[in-house]
Amino acid sequence: MNIDLEHLSPEMIQVAVAVFLIRLLIWLFYANTVRKTLLLVAPENRLITPNQAWLLAVPLFNIYWNFVIASRLADSLTNEFYDRKIAEEENPGRAAGNWYAWLFLLTNIPLPPFILITFFLLSITYFIVYWVKVSNFRNLLVEHEKFRNTPKD
């Protein structure tokens, strides 16, 4: 399928730009969730700096960076949960993060449309699952921090 870029209507260009900007905005919100989670992890337990989470919003580079985040965030959370003595799953979020990273990679490979649509839908599903898991881990760390800072009678 060839797309004649010279004869695209202005409406088609506007839709393409709008879809790109919405996708970028979603990636920025997601990166901010990862960054906020990493800010709650003690610096000695981090395997990645919080500001490196913003690299998730860089198109094309984020294909690789999703794998890095899935691995290093899980290891950072493991270290933090161990130090805080919080009982949580082993390698928190790594499986969902890796599934999302692989499916996102596959959606960026030129494949037949029916396969791409399948990978895209699965990618969105695992993206949401992983984002919710990361958000839940952040909430767990916030609640634990409140508990640790409560004065004891």
Rank of each mutant, 00 (worst) to 15 (best):
M1H: 08
M1S: 12
M1W: 06
I3P: 04
D4Q: 02
D4W: 05
D4N: 11
L5P: 00
E6L: 04
L8I: 05
S9D: 06
S9E: 07
I13M: 07
Q14C: 03
V15P: 05
A16V: 05
V17A: 05
A18I: 08
V19G: 04
I22H: 01
R23P: 00
L24H: 10
L25K: 00
W27L: 13
F29R: 00
Y30D: 10
T33V: 14
T33N: 03
V34K: 04
V34C: 00
V34I: 15
R35F: 12
K36Y: 02
K36E: 14
T37W: 10
T37C: 15
L38C: 09
L40I: 03
L40A: 07
V41A: 08
V41N: 02
A42Q: 08
E44I: 10
N45H: 15
R46Q: 12
L47D: 14
I48T: 13
T49S: 13
N51L: 13
Q52S: 14
A53L: 08
L55R: 13
L55I: 14
L56F: 08
V58W: 10
P59N: 13
L60E: 07
L60D: 11
F61Y: 15
N62A: 08
Y64T: 10
Y64D: 01
N66I: 11
V68P: 05
L73P: 08
L73I: 13
A74D: 02
D75A: 13
D75M: 12
D75I: 11
S76M: 13
S76R: 10
Y82G: 03
D83M: 15
R84Q: 12
K85R: 14
K85P: 03
E88M: 13
E88T: 12
E89S: 14
E90C: 08
N91I: 09
P92F: 07
G93W: 09
R94D: 10
A96N: 09
G97L: 02
G97C: 07
W99L: 02
Y100P: 02
A101Y: 07
L103E: 01
L106D: 03
T107F: 12
P110T: 08
P110E: 01
P110A: 09
P110M: 07
P112F: 05
P112A: 05
F114E: 06
I115G: 00
I117D: 02
L122Q: 00
I124L: 09
T125S: 05
V129R: 14
Y130K: 02
K133R: 03
V134I: 15
F137R: 03
N139H: 02
V142K: 11
E143K: 06
E143W: 07
K146F: 08
F147E: 11
F147R: 10
T150A: 13
T150Y: 11
D153G: 04
D153C: 00
